[in-house]
Amino acid sequence: MTESVSASPALLEVQDLRASVADQEILCGVSLTVRAGEIHAVMGRNGSGKSTLSKLIAGHPSYTVTSGSIRFNGVDVEEMSPEERSRAGLFLGFQYPVEIPGVSNLEFLRVSTNARRQAQGLEELDTFSFEDHLQQRLELVQMDPSFLERSLNEGFSGGEKKRNEILQMALLEPVVAILDETDSGLDIDALRIVAEGVNHLAGPSNATLLITHYQRLLDAITPQFVHVMAHGRILRTGGPELAHELERRGYDWVDEAAGISSRQSAEVGA
């Protein structure tokens, strides 16, 4: 990253990150700095390593960093468990939120909100005050309160699951939110609701990292920085115009520009 030093502090610093799964290198040296008040987008086709990046930042136990570092608020997160990262204000919106039968959505939201509040030195919310707290945020994602009575994500449609993710984001008030393919599988209305939610929550003291492979979401949320990922690397970085160029010219163009044939890229694709 060679942008001029901005006044706002760096919230997330990824440095020369390498990682592999089952002996195959998935990330081959990724560097990325996200500062307060910024919105970044990471684009790339399936298997480019962008989901791996988000899982690594959130601390998924199946992915291990082989070298490089991830710093959040100036602290190396390597030794932090996923829950510690979450309580510190890192949020991952999942591409495929799991369904957990039997665990009530409401209870889950309350337990996780209180875990974050405790870490922030705020008072824990009891059942009643939590419901008030929840009410305004439900409106933000236009979610029917009946979803709270159901099991976590169980039987939710794709759009409902993603709205539930944004609801969690609204409750946890993260410092850095990473949204992994939050736009995939959404119809126009759901996409609008999700985008409004994200825009609403973006502020000068937090930052958002959007991971996507379509331009679509970026029409609704305008990032300051767009990174194009392929073969486990960030090949190009630019402003919003880069996303448009990508939309027009396709991913092969990036490969060619980087001197990688599309055949090679097919092999790397997971």
Partner: peptide, 11 residues
Amino acid sequence: ELFYLRSRGID
């Protein structure tokens, strides 16, 4: 499932 919960701050 466990990871999902942990990523929401639940130990």
